[in-house]
Nucleic acid binder design. Structure first.
Lengths: 201, 201, 201, 201
DNA sequence: GATGAATGAGATTTCATTCAT
DNA sequence: AATGAATGAAATCTCATTCAT
């Protein structure tokens, strides 16, 4: 009766379901998506879903964990270069927009998903905490080195991350058309943040 | 059931339902709330709800329209004072946080509500467009007057509004404890935006 | 779309659902019965069931409560007559079999229903406790009056009720054919209990 | 998964599954138990279960067959002694309670298990028929010998077995605490049955 | 024989919406 | 205008059973 009755390795099935869920969330939104949609898309039986994820929320969280990891890696690598503060800041902005460009749907899921997905992108997630930490460190060092205006580095980090997220949402999520003005927004963020943070000689 | 008047005037009923819905959303979140909860809270019958609102989403939108109006009025009045750009900027920040402090539940509804409530706080809403317009004007004039750094005024306005919203969410929505750190965040926003925007002599 | 969309009074609906449930339990057993079966039988919508009962178990319990009440009333009324102990004992046996004859299906539900229905017919049910109490009293008085053999009245009452229940199950529940041998069993119970309990002059 | 032999002899596997099923039924009841639970407990794969038993009901029936065999053997051996009727009756009661004490969980399974397990303890089972036969014989002979009151021996046998079963359920199944009052109930059964059956000189 | 991933029918439950009163 | 019992579509989740390996 089943055309495909093949036992796949666990990671394969997980990826298969994750990809299907991502597509469905993209097309119908979090609330609009059903487990039925996801398994139909994945081409597996209803029960198979529950072998790998315990609920719709669990897949969504898994998807967002992936996003945060990529975001974290991008920010981290922007820090690596041995250059001045303003270069690092610029890299960070660029890297963030880069990741966002490729994951606009997940941003949408995270930010206009629902009650349940929201915490994943915020304080409750360890990945988010790690990013916040990285940026706070960058700011602390830059302030000490006189490259950045004096201010509370953690508060500044939270606001900068927030501004980036918001700009990304404006750029890729709210508007229907993919990239309309996304470059302008990225440029705007650069100007704003350089003005706000970089100490002028 | 008790001595409630059977027939209330329409605006009274609407307010009654709006207040009930707001309470229910606050307590259970958008997804968790049911029409049933709302009418129980309002003390009216199930069917009565549909005489005034066509769906759960419609009440939520109505609630958020109210919030945007209050936000718009606050920003507008901050513009009224005949002072310098940096004073106006400060007033705007203060007014925004002021409104947010009193409407944290609606912010939560708007931002972690659901797919359906999100547009209301963004480009799709006329009220939002009006605020954006006000701020853009403020920036245009300030740039012309040399009080503000040169940049695209609309992009700047969108980013500033975004930063404000994000800070407000961080301050009042994500964290459980009401105002923990909300003052610090407000202060951070002031520093950041003054640095970013106000032209230094 | 609905041929019948009539609002019935609550007691009417409850009785309607109770009757439907009883029929379905009789035909399919407790485990075999589904809520779907019950509502189909009752001719109401799926959701209507939940307006009146919270689960399959809840209807079953309600059904068994009714049975225990009838059983209690029968035993009680057998006590009323102002006659000798052995007459009362006989009346009690007769009354029990009488009720059982008319409620064989509920006995089946109670005794071979499932984990969930069992407690209703036993110590956990107040109705059962009341019957036990009545019989224990009867025995106490009869022992004091020298009409009954000396023994622990409560233990005796529990065993006698148990014997009656078992005989009833044998008579009406286990065998398929309704009354095959039910008279013989009733007669056997009479002989056994008279021998066991009634003091011989 | 560890060093378990891959291939066990059939009787060993059966015992293994039977023991696991018994444990699971004891802990979760018949309805609450799943095949999944049983195989997990037995440490074998899901499919292996079906190599030995065709369904959950089949294992339960197998378990109860074992109980009935033990019960039959106990009753049989109580008959063996070459003594008077009342001694044999006493032995039978003692032996029954003895077996019950060690198999309370299976009694529970039999009586509050479900529709499906019930027949096993009653007329449908050959083991039950054999016990009924043994007791009927005992009674026939005792009546002929004038040691027992005159009555239909088969009816009497069915009722006596029923009374025993019920007393056992009261003693070991319904109440939570294992043996609370079980001795008193056993004593009560002895008194009742001696009074009821043994002919007085 | 043994495995265990996969299946999918089916059961329970919720809830927005309708409409006769 | 107001009511609220009734509706029924739809969603989630479970679990006995199969079968390719």
């Amino acid at each position: 009766m089943a055309a495909r009755r093949r036992t796949e390795s666990e990671p394969v099935r997980r990826r298969q379901l994750l990809a299907a869920a991502r597509k469905v969330f993209r097309e119908k939104g979090y609330n609009g998506a059903t487990i039925s949609d996801i398994v139909r898309e994945a081409g597996v039986a209803q029960g198979t879903f529950y072998l790998y994820y315990s609920s719709k929320n669990a897949v969504a969280v898994s998807l967002l964990d992936g996003l945060m990891e990529r975001m974290g890696a991008a920010v981290e690598s922007a820090m690596k270069s041995d250059t001045s503060f303003d270069k690092k800041l610029g890299s960070m902005i660029g890297a963030s927009f880069q990741v966002a460009r490729q994951n606009a749907d997940l941003y949408r899921l995270a930010f206009i998903g629902a009650d349940e997905t929201h915490p994943e992108m915020h304080s409750e997630s360890p990945e988010h905490a790690s990013i916040l930490n990285t940026v706070t460190n960058l700011f602390s060092i830059a302030i000490d080195a006189g490259e950045m205006e004096a201010m509370d580095p953690e508060i500044a980090a939270r606001l900068v991350i927030g501004l980036l997220q918001h700009a990304i949402i404006e750029a890729f999520v709210s508007g229907e058309g993919e990239s309309e003005g996304s470059e302008q927004l990225e440029q705007g963020v650069r100007v704003l943040l350089v003005n706000a943070l970089v100490r002028r000689g």
